[in-house]
Design a protein around this nucleic acid. Sequence first.
DNA 1: TGCAAGTCAATACC
DNA 2: GGTATTGACTTGCA
Length: 392
Amino acid sequence: HKPWNNSAEESVNGLAGDPLASQSSSLKPPSEDPSGGESQPGTPLPLPGHSGLSIQEMVAMSPELDTYAITKKVKEVLTDNNLGQRLFGETILGLTQGSVSDLLARPKPWHKLSLKGREPFVRMQLWLQDPHSVEKLMDMKRLEKKGGQQQLKKARVVLGPEEKEALKKAYQQKPYPSPKTIEELASQLNLKTSTVINWFHNYRDFSANISDFDAGLNLCFYSRSRIRRELFIEEIQAAGGVGPGSEGGSPSLRGCKSGEGDSCDGTESEGTVETRQGLGIGLEDHRGTCKDQGMEVESEAGASNNSPAQLDCTTSGLAGPGSSCGQSGLGIFSLTEASSTSSASSTNIPSSGPARNPRDNNLRKKKAANLNNIIHRLEKAASKEDPSEWEF
DNA sequence: TGCAAGTCAATACC
DNA sequence: GGTATTGACTTGCA
């Protein structure tokens, strides 16, 4: 029942040669929603007023979109109109609340998205272009009835800090553990092997060979794509662009601030490494520890705000009106309002989000120290092959 | 078959 | 009650 499965039946019109360019006529009224008025993830409303092209075709033909500008605008509209992510996700995108939250908070750059991954952004863009988008969602909200019975819930495994640390340590040593290693880990941590496997899948972003990278990076962790996305956003923020910082703090900081040591991704993809270099965040100067990508990068990134032009816009996907780099797609998906605020920097945070007050700074320092401590122990442990010798 | 990307959905958090 | 996080799962591809 994936949204993408039936979305091919949705049609669009007047897009030949200029995909997504036409202003949509309107979404169908809620009463015409095939789902019967109660949208579910997987049954997004039909695309507004286009016929002849499936959503996949539209996505394939779409020029590059400024995913960050789109999500920023969507967040604004939802907030301004008191519309929730769940309603928006289920009605417009065919996604669940959590997915919407993730997309809105950590949009990946267009060029890093697969066709499937681009689809929600195309839907968002079309929704933004619909002059009646808000009122229709409001109607949906009014019509929405409380759902039926709660399904039997499956217990969720919640890994403890020690387990996470041990897994990260194991990952650092062996991103692709053998079944035997997985079993050993599962046994030692008292977890199911499937949990360990899933954790590695989730944490792993790519099978990087650390020797392929700057030697200075090889003490840092690999990460899954969602962590890498956070770094991308932080880079935007650091570059002085319209970053998530403008709405209350970097998600990646959230990851590292949590003291869990997430987001410690030293083996970034080529693009991000370029970006970091472009930002003047000296990799060699911060080699070997995750602190440079957690707490401390923030201040350094902030210090780099003065040179946003150095940012590789093609890599970051930040290019747009007002940026120093051109972007092909924005002529069609113009969101100049959002992009024009690119002067926002990490120091320009609205009061709605976690402010960078002295108290926060102290907290950060405290957590940075804690993180360094963890790193120290991990580095120490890294020299020991036998997991039983790991010290946590 | 293994991996990466994308998403779901339980639950923590505010 | 809405949003963020994250373990689990699905899908598509090489």
